[in-house]
Computed example of a mutant assay.
Amino acid sequence: MITTIRRGTARDAGAVAALHAESWRTAYAGIVPAEALGDGLAAQRHEIWELRLTVDYGGPETAPELLIAEHGGAVVGFAYLVPQPDGRVLLDNLHVRPGLTGGGIGRGLLDAALAHIAARHPGADLYLEVLSANTRAVAFYERAGGLRTAAGEGVFPGGHLLPEYEYTWPRGERAPEEVPAAGQSRS
């Protein structure tokens, strides 16, 4: 599947929110309490993405970046990067449409995120937090060169505390095999 990766805009909020909710319901079923994945999830995700994509963050050093993976004009995945005060960049979300995982879309988004950080935040580490019970995601991040750098608990909607891991890609220690520039195709 040839996927194009581009920068996201406020126009993508609805598609990203719908994919985010669908991905949570699929990936977190049996891991997260059912009420956190219930009827209000889609509306909650839509509200969050509308806000995230319309706020003025003050400049490129502090502004988050949304990367969109498209196939045939449809959003099939996304990654959301958030610069942190400690100089690192948080990969706050990386989601691929359920049914399309395992086909390289997630790896393309991760590689594009690393390329974005190298260009926009040279020397910054990329890190993320993943639920430890999300074994498919944990395996993906480890295959992609992520180093487990911490373990703790994350707060999920409804105040649920769930065990999670932190994975880090220190700059200079992992060079992506093939890094497409935003807007270029990746097969």
Rank of each mutant, 00 (worst) to 15 (best):
V89Y: 14
L81N: 04
G14F: 02
A175W: 08
D92W: 13
R52E: 06
E129K: 00
L162M: 13
A13I: 11
G183C: 00
L51I: 04
S23K: 07
R11E: 11
T4M: 13
A133P: 05
R136N: 09
R7G: 08
G154Q: 12
R11T: 09
R136V: 12
R136E: 14
L94D: 05
R88A: 13
Y80G: 00
Y165Q: 00
L67T: 12
A42T: 12
V89S: 14
T62A: 12
A133V: 06
I105V: 15
W169D: 01
G145H: 02
Q44W: 12
H46A: 15
P180W: 10
A34G: 08
L66T: 12
A69T: 10
V89N: 15
G106E: 14
Y28K: 14
A63Y: 00
D111Y: 00
V179R: 06
D12M: 08
P163Y: 03
A133S: 03
A63V: 02
R186P: 05
A34E: 11
Q184G: 08
L162W: 07
G104I: 13
A29D: 15
P170G: 02
A79H: 10
R120S: 12
P170N: 04
L131D: 02
R88C: 07
E142W: 01
H20K: 01
R45Q: 14
G30E: 11
I68N: 01
R97T: 13
T54Y: 07
L114C: 06
V130L: 06
R148Q: 15
T26G: 09
G159Y: 10
S132C: 02
D56W: 06
L162C: 12
A181I: 02
L109E: 09
A113H: 07
A124W: 06
A18M: 07
R25N: 09
A151C: 11
V138Q: 05
R143L: 05
E177F: 13
V76E: 15
Y167S: 03
V75D: 10
E129P: 03
E50N: 08
F156V: 07
E173A: 10
T4P: 05
A181C: 09
G58A: 05
G123W: 03
P180L: 13
P33A: 14
E22W: 01
E142V: 13
T54F: 02
G108E: 01
A115P: 03
G146E: 02
Y80F: 03
L147C: 11
P176T: 11
Y28V: 03
A79K: 00
E35S: 09
E142N: 01
V16F: 08
G8D: 07
E50F: 00
P176I: 06
A181L: 10
G108T: 15
G183F: 01
L91G: 02
A137Q: 05
H95T: 11
V82P: 00
G123T: 09
L81A: 03
A10V: 11
L66W: 12
A69S: 14
V75I: 15
L53K: 01
P122M: 02
R45L: 07
G123I: 09
I68K: 04
A182I: 07
